[in-house]
């Protein structure tokens, strides 16, 4: 390749890289992070102070006609097949709040029911409860323990009734 062409390639990338980073920031705020992009994970969140650490966690429960038959269902088991590094993100994308499920159709409901039935073949599950929990770990004591737990969002996904 000619030297001048190579220089032009470098000049292009020296201009393009900061511009695409700015675009990733703007689009990321509006929608979600673009891909592919010349960036590495930011791990931007700051959730720890000298007093406590905040950990956000989704908790799934399976409910039948008698009540909760399984609480804190391991997401890795319910969604077996997805890469472990993607499970948390998959949860955030599809189970963050009830509005995300309202946009999904009967096929999605049937898919979820099928996953639950595979995990609990002898049960007759009617719905999946999703709770998003903020756990605060106390750092003031020598032994780390949960200081308080707060449910920040809770909703139910019916596995049978489309009017949910």
């Amino acid at each position: 390749m000619k030297k001048n062409t190579v220089k032009k390639i470098f000049i292009f990338f020296l201009i393009f890289l900061p511009l695409q980073y700015a675009a990733v920031g703007i689009i990321g705020l509006e929608k979600s992070e673009p891909w592919p992009a010349f960036i590495l994970p930011a791990f931007q969140n700051v959730d720890a102070t000298p007093e406590d650490v905040l950990v956000k966690e989704p908790v799934l429960s399976i409910v039948d006609s008698t009540g909760v038959i399984a609480d804190a269902v391991p997401s890795g088991k319910l969604f077996m097949g997805i890469h472990e590094s993607q499970i948390q993100g998959f949860f955030r994308a599809h189970f963050r709040d009830s509005t995300r499920w309202k946009g999904k159709n009967a096929e999605a409901r049937s898919w979820l029911a099928n996953r639950v039935n595979q995990l609990y073949p002898t049960a007759d599950p009617q719905s999946v409860n999703v709770r998003w929990i903020n756990r605060y770990y106390d750092l003031s004591s020598a032994r780390r323990r949960i200081d308080s737990t707060r449910v920040i969002n809770e909703f139910s996904i019916s596995l049978r009734d489309e009017s949910n």
């Binding site: 992070e33 891909w35 592919p36 992009a37 010349f38 960036i39 590495l40 994970p41 997805i82 590094s85 993607q86 948390q88 993100g89 998959f90 955030r92 994308a93 599809h94």
Partner: peptide, 8 residues
Amino acid sequence: VGKINHDF
């Protein structure tokens, strides 16, 4: 599926 990894 709703989650990207940064392995570009």
